[in-house]
Nucleic acid binder design. Structure first.
Length: 1144
RNA sequence: GGGCGUGUAGCUCAGUUGGUUAGAGCGCGUCGCUGAUAACGACGAGGUCCCAGAUUCGAGUUCUGGCACGCCCA
């Protein structure tokens, strides 16, 4: 090799990965590596990734690290595989959480307070507040190595984004898919606002409510009443129906005290009788079905006096009373109550569904209308004059009293249950309350959504038919509107005179309306505060001020509805709205739709996964047509691409995403949900500082499949360092040290290309064809290419876990077999031997390829390795490993036979060590022989050529292989179950028994002679078994120092001769002396003088016989069987050992 | 209450279409190496595969019913 100074830099021996990572971040920034990785693929086929927009309105936590790591690894991989993978960041910026944050800041929380504060300054604050934690998000994203275009991020409050959403809503509106209806919400009456499910969930606590059993007298059966149970007496005035389960049995019982008959579910009669403390003899029993349709008198007559006899026409042409009938409902149970359920659809979502079902039975003009005697303030309205102005919860007692006085109260009791209170005002109970709301008719698309879903590649697969599929099956119309302030305004304008409506698709379209007024509100605000983001002009309150002439009635004005929309709709519109499509960027949208890959956590099933699928199916699915804004001739289409709005009806499912990895929930150290108060997790920044981003990433990728619930364990993150990162580093470090010593110069490959592919390195004069290299070289390269094959096929299937398993196993084999077995080849004193060149080239190539393989997973470490490994080329190679192509397996290098043989060899070495340990014969003590018994001969010839390796590993003088190991081994023959199962079936246990009972050796002999053995089955049937049909197992006999593996048994010759023992002592002495050298902190070139004083003959003999060996190994210039003056001896089992450093 | 998922070694987790010796890492124990060295390696102990039934020649794996935990929805 060249005598010039090695171009390799010696790497730090104990690297600080966190520090190296920070350097790499700077390197990437300084050199625009990410941008270049994209530019390099500008003409490549695209692999489309969508970023599910996080909300920057909260701190990022470890769960987000997982999401962002997974979102990073596949785009990186695909990019290296030759695709163009753009990664546009995005931020979710609208919604209640933002309003709440701002409210906290301002010390206000009710809607009244917000309005008192002023909507205009409030939403301005919202817009500013969205970025509250932006810095942390960006820092985390960058530090984790998540490559994404933060500068080009889409933002849901941007005008272009809002306009895309408007366009889609207008499309839906014009297709008749938007409508107004009621939605029963959890309502905070005092604050005048609905609460989200999450908020409601926070406020449950146990309370005692009245439990009343009320009589509903049946109209057509005088003296007979339904018994109805409720814990909310205040809902009784708004009663509309009573529900029974058609399949349940009901009893008519006689109540002597009241002098009437009661209808109660049979299963509950006893319970109610016990509460009443009186007998309720059964008069008759009936099925729920027979009660259906029976009319009753409601407990209060507020509505009854006018509507009591109201009838309507059914769709069947018949006539039926609209209200106060018994209806069927299968949610009725007999767990509590009476089995007859009071229905006040205004105050219960389930009850409301019953009303909807009832309404559907009637012709449209004759439907029962919702009864609601309570106002949004939670107080009775004049529809129930008796209690007008009374807060509902205060009405419970007086209502019960009224019922009692009217003889309608069977029983008053108390009932303990959990009931939600407002989390912001915990004295305020929430009530369910109907609100006018806008809906999207998603139910009409249920089957198409299911069809679309069925084509999506879900990871894990059970999401498709499980959680997500079920959710789609039970689809209900999307409640779109929110009575809030900070959100995308619902773009519907209403004629103030006729109530007719139209949707607006973008801001210019609005401005072009005739008689436009109100735009000055925005102009004024902007003039007063030029800093205001222009995007705010499409938000409340500015947009609300904009009105125009009604096309429906002369002189009337069009005014926007007041609502904003659900921010899930924002995020679901992201596939087109991120581009501002269709107003602009048609080509970008066309290119980037649908996504090949998205990933979020499980909680997005009903969130982003759904909102995207629903919107895409409605807009671009089968049967949909995209209409041009033809009615709006004034709209200024700045971009001609707007005209080219495609018809996506032809777009094959699935869209808008083809593959989705659903990540499991991340749990804290204690296996519980992560929570700041419990402090059961580490802050990401601490992890980065202590262990580095690669350690965290590897923990995510290699620890478990990503969809399992992951327990965040600091120890596991820490473990990824020695298990993988450091192990790989050590191999590299080993290589660098010796490459530097020997002056190994890869630049001698004059035709080396900029990715240092093996083909191009072969131009080096010292580079030999792999086939000519030693076996271990061929072996490691075979393993490398096999690993490459596995990793590529896993990653193509989005399976990071098994890809990492393969990588981990390979790095282990590289470190613990290849390098270990090859060390002396690098130490060889001959600098220019071909074997040494082979060793260097093999390890160099292996490291290069491994570095590329691990690049998507551990981008920092791989970059560091790449920089070092390519350093000799002084800039002639690609600047970054991330600009390289992903390795492709070279099938010609994969030698499965060699792989199998080597595996057996390693097993034999391992068994030998095991046998030694068992027999308490330490490896340092040489043994004369091992005998290896194999099940068959196929590998013997190959193994024999590796005797020296086995001798060395096991420290024995000789190795013998045999298949005839009767002496040591018991043969047993078992059937090959998998093969014979189908053929033998029920007789399998018999076959197994017969094979076991026959002498193994006899069978094997017969098999060898005839190629088959015959077995007589009980049914006089003869079974011929060839050697594929059976499996030979070896079992070491007792009394031998032996260990057995799957196909081999290793037997030790335990006879220890004097010679062997003395050699063992010599090796022990060497070790003792080496330890002493270390104690004395010798430099490894220091010469020493050694003295050994012992009474034992073996020790004396060992020193005499093996003086050269001992001196050579320990760099001793002198070794005597005498004390060394002025040195303290170490006491050992061999006597006293003196070691002194020689004065130079 | 419904849906979905999970339950395998002390801990964290793998386990391919059912095939008869259930794996890994950590931890623990023993030993080794000392020219990758504040590292490293080998070997070992440790398992009623949550429980009970069923299907099957054969079940950690399929089915049914429980139990426990988690998530989502009521």
């Amino acid at each position: 090799m060249s005598d010039s100074v090695s171009p390799f830099r010696a790497p730090p021996s104990n690297p600080s990965f966190p520090n190296l990572e920070v350097d790499i971040l700077k390197f990437w920034d300084d050199n625009n590596i990410y941008q270049e990785s994209l530019a390099q693929r500008s003409d490549a086929p695209s692999f489309v990734f969508y970023e599910g927009p996080p909300t920057a309105n909260g701190l990022p936590h470890p769960g987000h690290c997982l999401t962002r790591a997974i979102k990073d690894v596949f785009p990186r991989y695909k990019t290296m595989r030759g695709y163009r993978c753009e990664r546009k960041a995005g931020w979710d910026t609208h919604g209640l959480p933002v309003e709440v944050e701002v409210g906290k800041e301002l010390g206000i929380h009710s809607k009244e307070e917000i309005e008192a504060y002023g909507i205009e300054p409030f939403i301005q604050k919202c817009q500013q507040s969205v970025w509250r934690y932006m810095q942390q998000w960006q820092t985390l994203t960058r530090r984790l190595g998540f490559w994404v275009d933060l500068e080009e991020a889409y933002v849901t409050y941007h005008q272009s984004y809002v306009e895309s959403v408007w366009w889609s809503l207008k499309t839906l509106f014009e297709r008749g898919l938007l409508y107004q209806g009621h939605k029963i919400v959890w309502w905070w009456a005092q604050g005048g606002t609905a609460l989200s499910a999450g908020e409601v969930g926070q406020g449950y606590r146990e309370v005692a409510d009245p439990s009343v059993y009320v009589l509903f007298p049946l109209v057509d059966s005088p003296g007979r009443s339904l018994v109805v149970w409720t814990t909310t007496p205040w809902t009784l005035p708004s009663n509309m129906f009573a529900a029974v389960h058609p399949e349940l049995e009901y009893s008519v019982v006689r109540d002597e005290e009241l002098g009437c008959e009661l209808v109660i579910a049979s299963a509950l009669v006893e319970m109610i009788a016990a509460k009443l403390k009186r007998e309720l003899p059964i008069v008759e029993t009936v099925r729920g079905q027979s009660l259906i349709g029976k009319r009753y008198v409601p407990p209060f007559d507020a509505y009854h006096k006018t509507l009591g006899e109201a009838t309507g026409e059914l769709t069947t042409g018949e006539t039926e009373h609209k209200l106060w009938r018994v209806v069927a409902a299968n949610f009725v149970t007999t767990e509590s109550g009476s089995g007859v359920v009071h229905q006040a659809p205004a105050f219960g979502e389930v009850d409301y569904d019953v009303l909807i079902e009832e309404q559907k039975r009637f012709v449209e003009s004759d439907r029962p209308e919702l009864l609601c005697a309570v106002g949004p303030d939670g107080k009775f309205t004049d529809e129930f004059p008796e209690m007008k102005g009374v807060w509902v919860k205060d009405a419970d007692k007086p209502l019960a009293r009224t019922l009692r006085e009217a003889g309608r109260l069977l029983l008053l009791d108390q009932y303990l249950h959990d009931y939600p209170f407002c989390w912001r005002a915990d004295e305020d109970p929430l009530i369910q309350y109907p609100r006018r709301s806008w809906f999207i008719r998603t139910t009409r698309f249920r089957d198409l959504m299911l069809k679309n879903n069925s084509q999506i590649g879900w990871q894990p697969e059970h999401i498709r038919d499980g959680r997500f599929g079920n959710f789609l099956e039970s689809n209900v119309d999307w409640a779109l509107s929110r009575e809030r302030y900070w959100g995308t305004p619902l773009p519907i304008w209403v004629c103030q005179e006729t109530g007719r409506m139209e949707a607006i698709g973008n801001y210019d379209e609005l401005l072009a309306k005739p008689g436009i007024e109100g735009t000055e509100v925005w102009a004024k605000a902007k003039a007063e505060n030029p800093e205001l983001a222009d995007d705010l002009r499409v938000h409340k309150p500015y947009i609300d001020a904009v009105t125009y002439d009604s096309p429906f009635a002369k002189g009337a004005r069009m005014k926007r509805v007041t609502e904003v929309i659900d921010c899930w709709y924002d995020s679901g519109a992201m596939p087109f709205a991120q581009w501002g499509w269709p107003q602009q960027n048609n080509d970008r949208f066309q290119d980037q739709f649908p996504a090949d890959f998205i990933s979020e956590a499980l909680d997005q099933t009903r969130g982003w996964f759904y909102s995207q699928l629903a919107i895409s199916t409605m807009l671009f699915g089968e049967g949909s047509t995209i209409t041009e804004n033809s009615t709006n001739e004034n709209s200024t289409n700045k971009n001609s691409t707007n005209k080219a709005a495609p018809n996506f009806a032809e777009q094959a499912y699935p869209h808008p995403y083809r593959n989705c990895i659903v990540l499991g929930l991340m749990l804290g150290e204690d296996g519980k949900k992560m929570s700041k108060s419990k402090k059961n997790y580490r802050e990401p920044s601490e992890i980065f500082d202590k262990y580095g981003a690669d350690a965290l990433r590897w923990f995510f990728f290699a620890g478990q499949p990503p969809w399992t619930a992951i327990q965040y364990r600091e120890q596991s993150i820490k473990d990824s360092i020695p298990e993988f990162l450091l192990r790989l580093w050590n191999v590299f470090s080993f290589f660098s040290i010796y490459a530097a010593i020997d002056g190994f110069d890869p630049t001698s490959a004059t035709k080396a290309d900029d990715q240092l592919t093996p083909e191009s390195l072969s131009s080096a004069p010292t580079y030999r064809d792999v086939n000519e290299r030693s076996e271990i070289d061929r072996w490691v390269l075979s393993e490398l290419d096999h690993t490459t094959e596995v990793v590529v096929s896993c990653m193509d299937e989005l399976d990071n876990y098994n890809a990492c398993q393969a990588l981990s196993a390979f790095v282990d084999a590289l470190s613990n077999w290849y390098v270990r077995r090859s060390r002396d080849r690098y130490w060889a004193s001959e600098k220019a031997s071909q074997d040494k060149y082979d060793a260097y080239w093999t390890l160099y190539e292996t490291l290069l390829q491994t570095t590329k393989l691990v690049a998507p997973f551990v981008p920092f470490l791989s970059e560091t390795l790449w920089q070092h490994l390519t350093h000799p080329f002084a800039g002639g190679t690609r600047k970054s490993v991330h600009l390289c192509d992903y390795p492709v397996a070279d099938a010609s290098r994969i030698d499965t036979g060699l792989s199998t043989s080597m595996k057996l060899l390693r097993e034999i070495a391992s068994l030998g060590r095991s046998a030694r340990a068992e027999a308490k014969l330490k490896v340092r003590l040489p043994l004369s022989k091992v005998e290896v018994v194999l099940a068959d001969e196929s590998e013997i010839a190959w193994l024999k050529t590796h005797d020296s390796l086995v001798r060395e590993e096991l420290n024995v003088k000789a190795v013998d292989y045999t298949t005839d190991g009767d002496q040591y081994v018991q043969y047993s023959v078992v059937p090959n179950f998998k093969r014979l199962g189908p053929r033998v079936g029920k007789n399998m246990p018999v076959v197994k028994k017969m094979l076991a009972e026959t002498d193994g050796n006899t069978l094997l002999t017969a098999l060898a002679k005839d190629g088959f053995v015959s077995i007589e089955l009980p049914g006089a049937e003869t079974l011929k078994l060839d050697n594929e049909d059976i499996e030979v197992r070896l079992q070491a006999k007792q009394g031998w120092a032996a260990a057995q593996g799957s196909g081999s048994v290793v037997v030790l010759n335990t006879e220890v001769t004097d010679e062997l023992r003395q050699e063992g002592v010599a090796k022990d002495l060497i070790r003792t002396i080496q330890n002493q050298r270390k104690e004395m902190q010798c430099d490894y070139t220091d010469r020493i003088v050694v003295g050994v004083v012992s009474d034992e003959e073996d020790v004396k003999a060992a020193v005499t016989m093996h003086r050269d060996l001992i001196c050579g190994e320990t760099l001793a210039s002198k070794l005597d069987l005498a004390a060394v003056a002025s040195v303290d001896p170490v006491e050992t089992e061999f006597g006293q050992v003196y070691v002194q450093v020689e004065k130079s």
